[in-house]
Amino acid sequence: MEFLSYLISGICLGSVYAIIALGYTMVYGIAKMLNFAHGDVIMIGGYISFCGFAYMGLNGWVSLLLAMVVCTVLGILIEGLAYKPLRQATSLAVLITAIGVSYLLQNSALLIWGATPKVYAPLIPLVGPDGAPNALRLFDGQLSISYMSIVTMAACVIIMALLTWFTSRTKLGKAMRACSENKAAAQLMGINVNRTISMTFAIGSALAAIAGVLLCSFNPTLMPTTGSMPGIRAFTAAVFGGIGSIPGAFLGGLLIGIIEAMAKAYISTQLANSVVFSVLIIVLLVRPAGLLGKYVPEKV
C-alpha cells in the first residue's frame, strides 16, 4: 500500500513534469532551440494565479485562466523580442539569450513580488470545510488520493490527448509539423513560419501556466526561483523521452516523476536528483535520441 501511494505521488509529480516537458519539446521541435526560460514562465504563471486569488479575489479556476492568458502573451513577446531576431544566429547565441531571458524573468519577479516566499493556496484545498481530507479513499482508507492529484493526472492526460489531436488533425498543427521538418519548404507552401513559431510558443506558455498552478498546489512556497528546478527536471524528461517527440515528453515526464518519487522514498531525499540524472545518462548512452526519439544523423 505504501508502494502504491509513492507510485501515485510519482505519477502525479510526473504529470506536472510532462506538461512542462511538452512545452519544451514543442518549442524545440519547431524552433530547434532550448527555451531555457520555459521554467520561469511556470513561475510567472504561479505568481499571476496567486495575484488572481489572493489580491483580486478571483476563484482559483479563474485565476488559472488569467495565468494562462498572461503567460500566452508573455511567451509570444519573449519569442518575438528575444528569439526571432536570432533566427539566423548560432545555437550558442540563442542558448545564451534564453539564459538571459530566464534571469530577466526571475529578477523581474523579485522586483515585483519580493524575495519573501508567498504561501500558495492549492487549486483544490487539501482539506475540506469539515476538516476531513479532500481525497478519494480506497481499500478502507488505507490509500488516499487527493482530488488535487486526480485533477493533475487528468489534466496531463487531457492535454496530451488534445495536443495529439491538434498536431495530427488541425491545419495549424500540421503546419507546425511541416515547419519543424523543413522551414524553407513550409514557406513555399504558403505557411507563415514566423507566425507558426509564435503560436507554438503561445501554446507552450499556456501549458507552462497550467503547470505553474499545479506545481504550486503541491509545493505551496512560491518564490522567483520556483520554476528553475522543475524546469530543469522537465527538460531532462523531454530529452529522456526523445526531444521533439510529444509522446516522448509525456512518457519521459511520467518516468522522471516516478523515479524521483521512488528514489526519495527508498533511497534518500538528498540523492533523488543524482538518481534521476544517472538514469538519464544511462538511457542516453544506450539510446542517444531518447526513449521515443528518432535518431537523425546531421546532414552534411
Binding site: 524553407a184 519548404a185 513555399l188
Partner: peptide
C-alpha cells in the same frame, strides 16, 4: 532534392 515532409 524534392523537400517533401518526410515524417508526414
Amino acid at each position: 532534392g524534392r523537400a517533401v515532409f518526410l515524417q508526414m
